[in-house]
Design a binder for these strands. Structure first.
Length: 191
DNA sequence: TGGCAGATTTTA
DNA sequence: AAAATCTGCCAA
């Protein structure tokens, strides 16, 4: 299993969003290891994308987005759920890929415990659920994904067909084709 | 099964 | 006041 390096993340954001599908997100925490295959992502861009948190400048919340590629950007939505993003592209621009859904691979018991024992399909399907299942929160915001206990890896999983749609849960720029998911995968949050 | 309100931080 | 969400409760 090959850990993804800065090289992977410094490519154009849409390219990273697409090639993250099939890769593995791992959190090796005190409680144990939890990991899943990425099956759904969204890109948030520097140019002409009002839905991007960085579009209205740097704030305390989105500061990590302006860091170097390979940085984790974790923020709170609606006051109670966390969302996990990977900073991509060039440092200072504020582009990122939101990881929306995982197919659980290992640490299923730990994930289920953290999530309150839902059905396996709902363990990490959706950005808030994924963070809860892997134990990702405020303390991972700004983390270097190429060095720490939270990281991404590739295992040679064969490339699957990718479906492109508009992004979910936003009202502005919802029509831009910046959401990507693996065709036919049961863990995609919605079609 | 499907729709809706509520939870609660951050920012404008 | 609205947001890159999820859950439980309600009605049919």
């Amino acid at each position: 299993m090959q850990k993804l390096t800065v090289r992977f993340f410094e490519r154009p954001t849409v390219e990273v969003a697409r090639s993250l599908l099939g890769k593995i997100l791992v959190h090796d925490s005190e409680a144990g290891v939890a990991a899943g295959r990425i099956v759904e992502t969204e890109a948030y861009l520097f140019h002409d994308d009002p839905a991007c948190h960085a579009a209205r400048g740097k704030t305390n919340r989105n500061a990590a987005m302006f860091g170097p590629p390979g940085t984790a950007y974790v923020y709170l939505v609606y006051g109670l759920h966390y969302c996990f993003n990977v900073v991509t592209g060039k440092a200072g621009e504020g582009e990122a890929v939101l990881v929306r859904s995982l197919e659980p691979l290992s640490g299923l018991d730990l994930m289920a415990f953290r999530r309150g024992n839902p059905k396996t399909r709902l363990l990490a399907s959706g950005p808030g659920r994924l963070c809860q299942a892997l134990g990702i929160g405020k303390s991972q915001n700004g983390a270097d994904l190429s060095a720490g206990s939270l990281f991404l890896a590739g295992d040679g999983y064969p490339e699957a067909e990718i479906i492109t749609t508009g992004r979910i849960g936003i009202t502005v720029a919802a029509g831009l084709p910046l959401r990507f998911y693996m065709a036919g995968n049961a863990y995609v949050s919605r079609k």
